[in-house]
């Protein structure tokens, strides 16, 4: 069974609250009884093997679950009324991109292949009521802020003309365009080379530092989570089996499955 949130702080600065979230498809339960809390500016990692339900949980929070999945429980975001799980597509569309930003594993699929980079970034702002001229001006700033060289050139490029790392930087700039309170990242660096991954992670950290946004970070890579996050929740078979500070959970794991994850992640110990 899941152990409920251990490090529940005062609810005053709570940003995101997930209560007994359940997700099922047909008769199969995929996620059950997930409780998670994010305070403003807090960075929480969600780890687990594939099939553990970490990505589903993340998509449920973002309101991006595919059709046909049933949800139970409650997701609330500070400043929004009601349960996000029951929110209309229209109000979700208003929240997404403005209050929450998202970065997925595959940057190519997150970008429109037929549209130049600049207009795509600008559109993210225009959707949420920023004027045309203002959006165009801020696009350059945003592209520069994610350390893209020659932002003016990048703005004129199409997604396929950029490298994987550059594309992920563009996606990050779109996610941060409207100054969201929560950045949701689902395996954002898994498809990248290690040296590129290191730089993108550094960038995510520095942009969070600058904007004060909270982070929900889904990854299978414990070392990456330990580097970026303050707190971590371990998922196993659709449930959170352990959560706490990164140090508590990963340096002194209590649950057998967490220990298993740590053992599996450590490839360096072997050798012939």
């Amino acid at each position: 069974m899941s152990s409920p949130a251990v490090t529940t702080k005062s609810a005053s600065d709570a940003l995101l609250e997930v209560r007994s979230l359940g997700i099922s498809a047909g008769g199969t339960t995929l996620v059950s009884d997930v409780a998670l809390q994010l305070r403003r500016g807090e960075r929480v990692g969600l780890i687990g093997a594939s099939g553990s339900g970490k990505s589903l949980t993340c998509m449920a929070i973002a309101g991006l679950l595919p059709e046909g999945l049933r949800t139970t429980g409650e997701v609330t975001l500070d400043g929004e009324t009601g349960n996000l799980l029951q929110a209309t597509e229209r109000s979700l569309a208003r929240i997404r991109g403005a209050r929450t930003g998202m970065v997925f594993q595959e940057p190519m699929t997150a970008l429109n292949p037929t549209m130049r980079i600049g207009p795509q970034v600008a559109e993210a702002m225009r959707q949420h009521g920023v004027g045309k001229a203002e959006a165009r001006r801020r696009t350059q700033e945003l592209l520069a802020a994610v350390d893209l060289p020659e932002p003016a050139t990048i703005a004129r490029a199409y997604p396929h003309q950029l490298s994987g790392g550059q594309r992920q930087r563009v996606v990050l700039s779109i996610a941060l365009a409207n100054g969201p309170d929560l950045l949701i990242c689902d395996e954002p660096t898994t498809a990248l080379d290690v040296t590129v991954q290191a730089k993108v992670l550094e960038l995510i950290e520095s942009r969070l530092e600058a904007s004060g946004a909270a982070l929900l970070f889904v990854s299978h890579d414990l070392a990456v989570v330990a580097q970026v996050c303050d707190r971590v929740a371990v998922m196993y078979q659709g449930r959170i089996v352990e959560q706490g500070s990164v140090l508590e959970v990963l340096a002194d794991p209590q649950h057998e499955h967490t220990r298993q994850l740590i053992r599996n992640a450590d490839l360096g110990g072997g050798g012939r």
Binding site: A49, S50, G51, S52, G53, K54, S55, L56, M59, P66, F104, Q105, E106, T109, D186
Partner: peptide, 10 residues
């Protein structure tokens, strides 16, 4: 594979 939906483990 780029599906963000996770598959059943086994």
């Amino acid at each position: 594979m780029t599906t963000s939906l996770e598959k059943a483990p086994t």
